[in-house]
Design a binder for these strands. Structure first.
Length: 275
DNA sequence: AACACGTCCTGAGCGC
DNA sequence: TGCGCTCAGGACGTGT
């Protein structure tokens, strides 16, 4: 479910509910998500105050006093919500944090591909060391045509598989990879190394624009994405290719959108306007 | 029954 | 042969 825009949407929705609050308790209902939960580490946050809620790539970072940080990744099906203490626990709600105002912050995740762990950081506002090697944020200065060209050089994989590689591009997932390539007019199966400098610049711009618009719309709801306040995203109505197999291309109006499987993921594109 | 918006692991293939 | 890197594909729960 959640790519960069969805995580950013959740981050913004959580922030006003969490920042400044003290953690009063934590309850867990499973042994493990993608990896075993460290209950003692989670409990060690109780009594501390939340000082910031941030995002880096697809990671959500909740910073506490004393340089403690809760690192969260939503995997395929993770979600967060804020609700009162006495709200009944939903199926697949695995962690409940109790705040000092009668509210709770809850993590739900049917597939349990997510990640929740406690880290200690060097100083206030710093990233945990495990995230220090991430590539540049797509919406930051360092992400541009020159950067894309540098990671495409010498790579024979299809460009879409490069965009999905989280060690090379941070935060782009399966929906926005298809959307950005369509916006840039570049075929998802093109070998990365064959992209010209001009195409890399166009693609970098397309990625930034796509992500920005998706954030502005509150993310994309295909099946069940909800922000932390329960509201669905609005970007699905602005999708140009994802999930539109057989429908006419909304840009060139000639081609029909095709679906193919690339590195075992659905990929959508317009054969007429993507080269 | 096929497919799902993510990541990790394994093993094949390649150049040196 | 071996090392290091790249890349494809399966596995991981559950829901629709």
């Amino acid at each position: 479910m959640p790519e960069l825009p969805e995580v950013e949407t959740i981050c913004r929705a959580l922030r006003p509910h969490l920042v400044g609050r003290y953690l009063r308790g934590v309850r867990t209902f499973v042994e493990a998500l993608r990896q075993p939960l460290d209950r003692r580490a989670l409990v060690s946050l109780v009594g501390r105050r939340i000082v910031a809620v941030r995002r880096r790539a697809k990671f959500l970072l909740v910073e506490f006093t004393d340089r403690r940080l809760l690192l969260m990744h939503l995997g395929m099906s993770g979600s967060c919500r804020i609700c009162p203490d006495n709200a009944p626990r939903r199926k697949h709600e695995h962690i409940i944090w109790e705040l000092d105002n009668g509210q709770t912050w809850r993590y739900g995740d049917p597939r349990r591909f997510g990640l929740v762990q406690v880290q200690v950081i060097r100083k206030r506002g710093a990233l945990p060391s495990c995230l220090c090697g991430l590539p540049p944020e797509p919406l930051s200065r360092g992400f541009n045509g020159a950067y894309l060209a540098s990671i495409c050089r010498g790579r024979s994989r299809p460009i879409k598989s490069v965009l999905l590689d989280q060690t090379l591009v941070a935060g782009v997932g399966n929906i926005y990879a298809s959307e950005a390539l369509h916006r840039a007019g570049i075929s998802p199966v093109r070998r990365a190394a064959t992209l010209s400098r001009e195409e890399c610049a166009r693609l970098a711009h397309a990625i930034r624009t796509t992500l920005r618009q998706a954030i502005a719309a509150g993310g994309t709801t295909i099946a069940d994405f909800r922000s932390a306040d329960g509201s669905p995203g609005g970007f699905q109505v602005k999708l140009f290719v994802y999930g539109r197999e057989g429908e006419p291309c909304r840009r060139c109006r000639r081609g029909r959108i095709r679906r193919l499987v690339l590195s075992s993921r659905s990929t959508y594109y317009c054969p007429d306007c993507q080269r």
